[in-house]
Amino acid sequence: MEYLGYSASILIGVSLGLIGGGGSILTIPILVYLFRVNPEQATSYSLFIVGSTALFGSYSHYKMGNLKIKSALCFAIPSVISILIIREIIFPHIAATLFSIASYSVSKDLLIMVVFSVLMIAASISMIRKNNCGMRSIPTNYIQLSIIGFSVGIITGFLGAGGGFLIIPALLFFANLSMKQAIGTSLLIITINSSIGFAGDLYIGSPIDFPFLFGITAMALIGMFIGTQISRKIDGARLKPLFGWFVLIMGFYIITREVWFSN
């Protein structure tokens, strides 16, 4: 299973390189089901893996001229605030077992995986549907961009998800960016959000297996290089629906497994 996990980790980078998101959607299931990492720890590991991989991708897009720094910071700063609130104040105080009904108990780990699977299903629908919002020419709405950034930070803090599938539509709608600019700027935002979130976990003393993390990250970086090279020749928007169907299937698999077979 570990060999399969390392091989699957390449897809994390491929996804980020091609469509500017989806890395965490793959990272959490890979860590939980292939490497047997508990879901709470997986959210922390995901921040490091996705953040490191996105950093490489954002640099590549910077060289291609696809980064919009002002939009990235406007989105990322409120995101960082909500991430720190969730991971350092709220998350540590959530009980391991939330409640029980007869012999069925709902744990924090179960809640993480169920919420994550619902998010996967919602994200997959947005990937599958055609989206032409980037073709409009409108002024950048920095206030709405900041509000959405704060909301995405809540998701990143709770689930360890970079939120690229939410960031990109926000950049297309409210920052008036092209698809390639939205992908590059999304990677920078994911880098900032994930790095701050992981740094917060280090600060509160979460146990981290760095050799393991470096191994997964190395494979994801290989995938990022592959995805970035492919994106130069193929528009990531064309591949997004295919990835969306894969995410949809994975989302239903996770919610079925966790709800019906976890107790």
Rank of each mutant, 00 (worst) to 15 (best):
R238M: 10
S107Q: 05
F252H: 08
L55N: 05
F261R: 09
D201Q: 05
Y33V: 09
F243L: 12
V259E: 03
L171F: 05
R129S: 15
F198M: 04
L34K: 07
A161T: 13
I89Q: 10
R232I: 05
I89L: 15
L110Y: 14
L187V: 00
Q181F: 07
G65R: 04
F174S: 05
V37N: 00
Y203M: 07
V37C: 05
T53D: 02
I128C: 15
A8Q: 00
Q181P: 00
G149Q: 06
G23S: 12
L110C: 15
I249W: 05
S58V: 07
G23V: 03
N193R: 10
A123N: 14
I190L: 03
P29L: 07
G227F: 00
F48T: 12
G21C: 02
T43W: 06
C74W: 03
Q41G: 09
S195W: 00
D201Y: 07
N132V: 10
E258I: 12
P169S: 04
W245A: 15
P92E: 00
S194D: 08
L239M: 10
A95F: 11
V37T: 10
I148L: 05
Y6A: 01
Y142D: 05
N176Q: 07
I154S: 13
F243R: 01
S146T: 06
S194C: 15
L248A: 15
I234D: 00
I89N: 13
L187E: 01
S46L: 01
A123C: 15
T256L: 09
V14I: 13
D209R: 09
G157L: 07
P139G: 15
I86H: 03
W245H: 14
I222A: 11
S52F: 10
N141E: 03
K180V: 09
M1K: 11
C133V: 15
A95T: 15
A175E: 04
F75I: 03
I89C: 14
S105Y: 11
S186C: 06
R87T: 15
I30A: 06
W260P: 14
S231A: 08
F210M: 13
G251P: 14
I128K: 13
I28E: 01
F212T: 01
L159F: 09
G57P: 06
G23F: 05
F173N: 12
N141H: 04
I94A: 14
S46C: 04
I155F: 14
L84E: 12
V14E: 03
G184W: 00
I138H: 09
P169D: 02
A182G: 11
G244A: 12
A72V: 08
S71N: 12
G153W: 06
N38M: 07
F99D: 09
S15R: 02
A8L: 08
P241N: 03
R238Q: 10
E2M: 04
A95K: 13
I128Q: 07
I154F: 08
K70W: 01
Q41F: 13
L172N: 10
F174E: 02
P241E: 00
F99M: 04
A72L: 06
N131K: 11
L145Y: 04
I190E: 00
I112L: 13
S15L: 01
F246Q: 06
G236Y: 02
C133E: 11
L55Y: 10
S178E: 03
G20C: 06
Y104S: 15
T156C: 11
I230L: 04
N66H: 14
T97Q: 10
I19V: 11
M179H: 07
V115E: 09
K240A: 05
Y6K: 02
I168L: 13
L188I: 03
N141A: 10
A218E: 03
I128L: 09
